[in-house]
Design a protein around this nucleic acid. Structure first.
Lengths: 224, 224
DNA sequence: GCCAAGATGAACCACTCGGTTCAAAACAAC
DNA sequence: GTTGTTTTGAACCGAGTGGTTCATCTTGGC
């Protein structure tokens, strides 16, 4: 619908029909779910014919998997880039963490991001392996949390954070961001103003630093 | 399945076919999604005939809504009961909060609970109003978080928690519980041993009390 | 201008689905 | 037993599905 139909003529031949198909597929799947989507509509939305679709991808399932994998890859790259921006030597740690928090939340609340999580959740029973696809790699732990834990380790060594389990700290940091965001946006159905996003991030960082900051009362090493 | 079946023969006539149908419907819908489920299978699973199903509920959509609403109501009741168990005058606050945390996580990780969240997420586009159904009432805020905030208010007045925004505290408390749980169970696809659940709850409470405990460094009132 | 590779529309197939109809049967209450 | 309400099985309908086939057309590369 958005692509499609130059008033003069429709360009034929091999262009990146493939890209168009994947994009259209994700759009349609996100809107109607796997079972609710029909390949004919996807082909139409991509401005191609059904046989073209079946030439590129063998069947509906393959198209679905590739579409999900593609969007998941893009989303993961964005999040990892955000985490990579955290400089362990920064002067104002609270401000830096808040900025990272806002950026992570921007990734989290992106339209595609909501749609992706919705899809994976929805088709979890039909395609159980999809969890690994979207978490990135075959790792047991979320790659974003892992990358964040790496940064936290350096912050601990630098004396900017109290001694702690970096993985646990990263896990809770992300939880403090995404939990409230999910609640406030009602699973992505209600728009959340930028100011509120920043407030959520700031509050998360405040709580996080009170618990994990270098000045926090006593080391957080497990007592048992 | 839980209800009845006298060993001799299948009882006919009007019993609570309705209950059986709702239970079967939720089971099937949870397994295949709205579009992937067919009413015939639901009827079969409930041990009834298709016309009986259509006599009780008018169509597939109504059956779906009623099934979701029923399970949502049950889940909400359990969670609210857990929050109600928090005694503001308890001696060992950390232990009490940990117990509440474990109980809340038990609600959260119940099989039906995962299925319910999956379903709501999945059909969010098709049935947007489902969010309110599952959050309970028409309130903007999650009722569980609200009830928890009430308890936290009393704990603040009793000097057991630092001055803070109770709603924000409750929001973060829940986030510290559910976030890590969701990550570790891989969206409910991997079983999490009870010991790990307790560890998650304990860690959440530790972080929460370091930030919100009465001994926390300075009041947490908003600075702007 | 030519040609292989790819794209197209349209028809086609076997199948499934939501929903309805109906006559026969099982039930509860009397 | 009789009566009236439900339930049941089975067949049926029309619409839509994933996937295929094929003759025709477009295109890019030479």
């Amino acid at each position: 619908m958005t692509t499609a139909n130059p008033p003069t003529r429709r360009p034929r031949g091999r262009i990146d029909k493939r890209r168009d198909l994947i994009a259209a597929a994700f759009r349609v799947f996100a809107a109607h779910g796997y079972m609710g989507s029909c390949v004919e509509q996807i082909a139409a939305e991509a401005g191609t014919a059904k046989p073209t679709l079946y030439a590129h991808f063998g069947d509906k399932e393959t198209l679905f998997r590739e579409a999900v994998a593609e969007v998941a890859r893009a989303a993961m790259d964005k999040s990892l880039a955000v985490v990579g921006d955290l400089d362990p030597g920064v002067a104002d740690l609270a401000a830096a963490l808040t900025d990272i928090g806002v950026d992570l939340l921007d990734c989290y609340r992106a339209e595609d991001s909501w749609a992706l999580r919705r899809l994976v959740n929805a088709e979890l029973v039909r395609f159980p392996d999809l969890v690994r696809t979207v978490l990135g790699g075959g790792a047991e732990v979320n790659r974003v949390t892992g990358a964040l834990a790496d940064r936290f380790s350096r912050l601990v060594l630098a004396g900017r954070l109290a001694r702690c389990e970096p993985d646990e700290a990263a896990e809770q940091f992300v939880a403090l961001l995404t939990g409230p965001m999910e609640a406030r946006s009602a699973l992505g159905t209600r728009p959340v103003p930028d100011a509120e996003v920043r407030r959520v991030a700031a509050s998360a960082v405040r709580t996080f630093l009170l618990a994990y900051g270098a000045e926090a009362a006593g080391p957080r090493v497990a007592t048992r």
